[in-house]
Amino acid sequence: MKVVVIGGTGLIGSKLIGKLNEHGHEAVAAAPSTGVNALTGEGLTEALKGVSVVVDVSNSPSFEDEAVMTFFRTSTANLLKAEAGTGVRHHVALSVVGTDRLQESGYFRAKQAQEELIKASGIPYSIVHATQFFEFMKGIADEATEGDTVRLAPVKFQPVYSDDVAAAVGRTAVDAPVNGVVEVAGPDAFQLDEFIRNALAAKNDPRTVVTDPHARYFGAELQETTLLPGPDAHIAETRFADWAAQQK
């Protein structure tokens, strides 16, 4: 099966390419560096000729509200138009657990707009919702930092290893379209503020983590279960403690 991965040179994309090729599929990375730009449409039609599945794991270079909305709306519309013209039979997109519950955030409003375009396109699709990657913990802390203080809500979350996300996206890509959402999450739930506090301490990061029930997560206020997957989620195998031990 020939699969084009939009954003195929990034963290998830590069792992996904490797996993698909290992299993005998022909996976091709598509990104601006390879001459394919979903935002401008450059190279899309040529890249999608003879392709069965398109997987979109691209992300906006800016999280500013207007920029991120423009990115996901424009790139997704360009992709879907090119897919319709070349006969692609399955569109797979990577999104985030809780997207529909995080609509105070400009980033998640843009992800929701992306998902709605996909659902309305008429192209068979699967959307993979993943929880926060282990590798993204510093990004969460940085976004919540003011001066030397990190403000985070005492809510549960269930982070996942990016390698497990790539595997889940790969399985979804080569299976039949579900025309719905598949969730993937890590095996352990943690309290967000405590987890980041411990992670920063382990790195000798001098910032102070303050527990604040009203602290915003990328612009959105969180409820206890906002970031948690549903009961039917695929639970990945890799535990954070095992992953962290390998990073030392």
Rank of each mutant, 00 (worst) to 15 (best):
Met1Pro: 14
Val3Gly: 14
Val5Ile: 15
Val5Lys: 07
Ile6Pro: 05
Gly8Asn: 11
Leu11Thr: 09
Ile12Cys: 06
Gly18Glu: 15
Gly18Ala: 15
His23Phe: 04
Ala30Leu: 04
Ala30Cys: 09
Thr34Ala: 12
Ala38Val: 01
Gly41Cys: 01
Gly43Arg: 06
Ser52Arg: 13
Asp56Lys: 00
Ser60Cys: 02
Ser62Ile: 03
Phe63Cys: 00
Glu64Arg: 11
Asp65His: 13
Glu66Gly: 00
Glu66Trp: 00
Ala67Leu: 08
Thr70Asn: 15
Arg73Leu: 02
Arg73Cys: 00
Thr76Asn: 01
Ala77His: 03
Ala82Met: 02
Glu83Arg: 00
Gly87Asp: 03
Gly87Asn: 06
Val88Cys: 06
Arg89Cys: 02
His90Asn: 10
His90Ile: 10
Ala93Pro: 14
Val96Trp: 08
Val97Glu: 07
Gly98His: 05
Gly98Ala: 05
Thr99Ser: 10
Arg101Val: 01
Gln112Gly: 10
Ala113Pro: 05
Lys119Trp: 01
Ala120Trp: 03
Pro124Asn: 01
Pro124Trp: 01
Ser126Leu: 04
His129Asn: 11
His129Val: 01
His129Gly: 01
Gln132Arg: 05
Glu135Asn: 10
Phe136Ser: 10
Met137Asp: 09
Met137Leu: 14
Lys138Ile: 12
Gly139Met: 08
Ile140Val: 15
Ile140Pro: 10
Ala141Cys: 09
Ala141Pro: 09
Gly147Leu: 12
Thr149His: 10
Thr149Leu: 15
Val150Phe: 10
Ala153Leu: 14
Pro154Asn: 13
Phe157Trp: 15
Gln158Val: 02
Pro159Asn: 05
Val160Lys: 09
Ser162Phe: 12
Val165Glu: 03
Val169Phe: 08
Val169Trp: 13
Val169Tyr: 09
Arg171Leu: 07
Ala173Tyr: 08
Val174Ile: 15
Asp175His: 13
Ala176Met: 08
Pro177Trp: 02
Val181Phe: 06
Val182Thr: 07
Ala189His: 02
Ala189Cys: 09
Phe190Ser: 06
Gln191Asp: 10
Phe195His: 12
Asn198Tyr: 03
Asn198Arg: 12
Asn198Asp: 15
Ala202Glu: 15
Arg207Cys: 04
Thr211Trp: 13
Thr211Pro: 03
Pro213Ser: 10
Ala215Gln: 12
Ala215Ile: 08
Arg216Gly: 10
Tyr217Leu: 09
Phe218Lys: 00
Gly219Pro: 12
Gly219Lys: 07
Glu221Arg: 14
Leu222Val: 07
Leu222Thr: 07
Gln223Lys: 12
Glu224Gly: 13
Leu228Ile: 05
Pro231Ser: 11
Pro231Phe: 02
Glu237Tyr: 08
Ala241His: 11
Gln246Met: 11
Gln246Val: 02
Lys248Val: 05
